[in-house]
Write a protein that binds this DNA or RNA. Structure first.
Lengths: 97, 97
DNA sequence: TAATAATTGGAGATTAGTTACAAAAGGAGT
DNA sequence: ACTCCTTTTGTAACTAATCTCCAATTATTA
């Protein structure tokens, strides 16, 4: 199996519509979650529209599972952050270059 | 390191504008390459606009290198396909589910 | 220089995404 | 039921992004 190019993966950020399709969460709800700070889109001055990278889409998927299991949005967000610790660090390090 | 979720990765398809930024190839040229069949966007009835998945963006990056090295677009496309054999199969298999 | 490959331009239309204001459900505790 | 807070949803008016289809231009090579 070819190794995944993490630097490239980091750049593969999808639109909110795409993220909504992938995660099966309404666009409107994703915007709300972002307003509340539970998720965040890629920050780039060049972008006038939102983009979500692999890490964030994965986070949304995991949050959804926890929420369906009874967790609040807030709690789900925190739990997922902890659980995804390693991947988050990889993505964070890639940003600082 | 967390393992990458290939099923999710497969779905992380970016717009043509995003692909253009990532690869530093003009949108217009990407459309031309697609017209000629050197690259192809995700086929989904739901999409009225183009989307390129990780495999295809990676292919574009590699094609670009070969072209800068003197290969024709056609030759670069073929060479990259061979070189990316394993990854292509992974993506192909994910499609058939 | 003729033929093919490769790239680029732009008009006019459509689709996707934005913010901002507001309203409606839902849940927990009193 | 009532209150407070969380969570979700609706919509209008606007901007950004992408689309197709026409064609023209610039290499490159026989």
């Amino acid at each position: 199996m070819d190794d995944i190019d993490y630097s490239l993966l980091k750049q593969m950020a999808v639109t909110i519509g795409e993220a909504a399709k992938i995660t099966d969460i309404p666009i409107r709800k994703l915007r709300y979650w972002e307003d509340k700070g539970y998720i965040k889109s890629v920050e780039e001055q060049a972008h006038t529209t939102r983009r979500f990278d692999y890490y964030m889409v994965k986070k949304i998927v995991l949050m959804k599972e926890l929420i369906e299991d009874g967790y609040t949005v807030e709690a789900a967000s925190q739990k997922v952050e902890v659980r995804m610790g390693e991947l988050r660090q990889v993505f964070d390090n890639l940003t600082r270059k």
